[in-house]
Amino acid sequence: MPEAPRPRAAVIQFPGVNCEYESARALAAAGAEADILRWNEDPARLAGYDLFLLPGGFSYQDRVRAGAVAAKEDILEALADEAAAGKPVLGICNGAQVLVEAGFVPGLRGEDLELALAPNRMPGRRGYFSEWCHLRVADSTPSWLGILSERVLPMPFAHGEGRFTSRRPGLFEELAAAGQVVLRYADAEGAVAAGWPENPNGSELAAAGVCNAAGNVLAMMPHPERAAWLGQVPELLPGPWGWKRRRAFGEWPRLKGPGPGHALFAAMVGAAAARREAVDAT
């Protein structure tokens, strides 16, 4: 039987994003064939791809609000069609802000902007905040991250506006009940964060990543592409990944092997491959 072709990933480059190269590299390491697509290329090109990544950065210099201008680009309309077809879409940091601004997430029908990513709330700090955190994957979720249920994934975050919030009372509880609060800030053992600094921005329910109801679109603030290789993990990070990192001391082949963020990309690429197989079979 011939080997299945690698799923094709498009990393969409809005003006001002700055994580497109390492994101493409992480997708490639997880088995995808990754291209970087400029925002003003022909939107029809999207149909040729199996999965999509909106990388971090400062698209359109965060004019109006982070992500707000990119959310109005033509290419987002084409992306909405691809998402409706069930293809996996991941927005990281500024990419998450774009997905939220464009209404992909949480994607409730008939209402505008249910969610927002608001300025961080941090005791004794203001502005940008960058550190490593631990994320716990929801135990039951429609997301392609479901195969990582209950796992704890450490990775860095870096943002000034990453607080998941909503004007609608009870929305986060509803989303959590539906498994859409896929990633929550936690401690190294996986207990969901009770407050700052484990929850670094004051997000409701310590939400770090939220998906749509169908589960194929995920908006997350932390950066899995900065934890895709073991060598990227800080040597004294608490928990099993820090231990793995120290155990790999002196062994370059292990350090260039998978880090905690790799599993996330692998799950996404795997979901894209499975979807295409299902489509091809029908």
Binding site: C19, R125, G127, F129, P156, E225, R226, W229, G231, Q232
Partner: peptide
């Protein structure tokens, strides 16, 4: 650390030892 946390030390994905480490 309070100062370093204002700066993005991880972008580009090449960090091996960060400020303060």
């Amino acid at each position: 650390r309070y100062l370093y946390q204002h700066y993005d030390g991880e972008v580009q994905g090449n960090a091996c030892l960060r400020p303060g480490e």
